[in-house]
Simulated assay, not measured.
Amino acid sequence: MAPEERADAARLLWGFERRFLAARALRSFPWQSLEEKLRDSSGSELLLDILQKPSGDSVTLCESTAIVSHGTTGLVTWNAALYLAEWAVENPAVFTHRTALELGSGAGLTGLAICKTCRPRAYVFSDCHSRVLEQLRGNVLLNGFSLEPSIDAEAERPRVAVAQLDWDTVTAPQLAAFQPDVILAADVLYGPETVLSLVGVLRKLSTCRKDQRAPDAYVAFTIRNPETCQLFTTELGRAGIPWEEVPRHNQKLFPYEEHSEMAILKLTL
């Protein structure tokens, strides 16, 4: 296969894999392009690649079909969790060989995608609602990860933990015990009280120094109410936490509402 032909085939295969991993409808697959490429190809490498891939690095979730269930919205995967997972898959170096702490993990989609594609050293899912934590543990196990401590430091899979974490009562020493290199949260800006609680825990996390380096932090959210987003950035300023918006990524992996306006902020803790 010529270099130009191989590059075209690689792009086609990448598109095929993304649709497969996102469980897209069969009609969305690039069947016509695939047929044309197979007809023009001098060998069988492309067909073999498609038959051998995807490799099974998909995420399986058990979640509620209701937006609010058991008194919480955390049993459903929200758009910003999908958006943050996409960004993470395209920026694996942020997580590779590092320890990540996720605030408000919900069903666990973002963290599971990171654990399967970004090779973190350890990943800590957290939430405060007992029903969410129960479902979260089930989803972690459903995807082949163990919640039992492992002494195998060379294992390819990250160490995974699920922690009950109340933003209003957790202490800085308790947060420091996680030794996080990366903090992340998705779709947790629901109103003024939540914003204040989130900024409060971020302020505590800013004291969690590891080797004199503060953890990186990324917060993804859907812009539903501009006033809530403005309150978040205002409170970050009052807490002395600088921030910048992460450039939008172009590739779409997961199925979410096309017209949702979402953003990711990188915070300097």
Rank of each mutant, 00 (worst) to 15 (best):
K252M: 07
V219T: 05
S44T: 13
A85I: 02
E4K: 09
N225Q: 10
S69E: 14
N91Y: 07
W243E: 00
F145S: 00
N143Y: 14
I50W: 00
A7W: 06
P192V: 07
T268E: 09
L51R: 11
G138D: 10
L253T: 05
S126I: 00
Q32D: 14
L253N: 01
L141S: 14
R209N: 10
D181V: 03
L189T: 10
E258R: 14
L165F: 07
Q174T: 12
L196S: 12
L267F: 02
I183L: 15
E90R: 06
I241K: 03
P192C: 05
A161N: 08
Y83V: 08
A85G: 09
G138C: 09
L205Y: 01
R159A: 13
R159F: 10
Q212L: 12
A186M: 08
R238W: 02
L46M: 02
V68W: 07
E134A: 15
Q174S: 15
T110C: 13
V76L: 15
G200T: 08
G240P: 08
E193N: 12
A185Y: 04
L51Y: 08
V140G: 02
W14G: 07
Q164F: 06
C118M: 06
E63T: 07
A85S: 11
N250Q: 15
L141T: 15
G191D: 15
S44K: 13
Q251F: 01
Q135A: 11
N143C: 10
F20D: 05
P215T: 07
A9Q: 08
I183H: 03
P92H: 06
S42W: 07
A239S: 11
L142E: 04
L142S: 09
L175C: 06
T77W: 03
R98P: 00
A23G: 14
A100W: 00
S150C: 12
L142V: 05
R18V: 14
P242C: 12
L82C: 14
T72K: 03
P92T: 08
A66W: 06
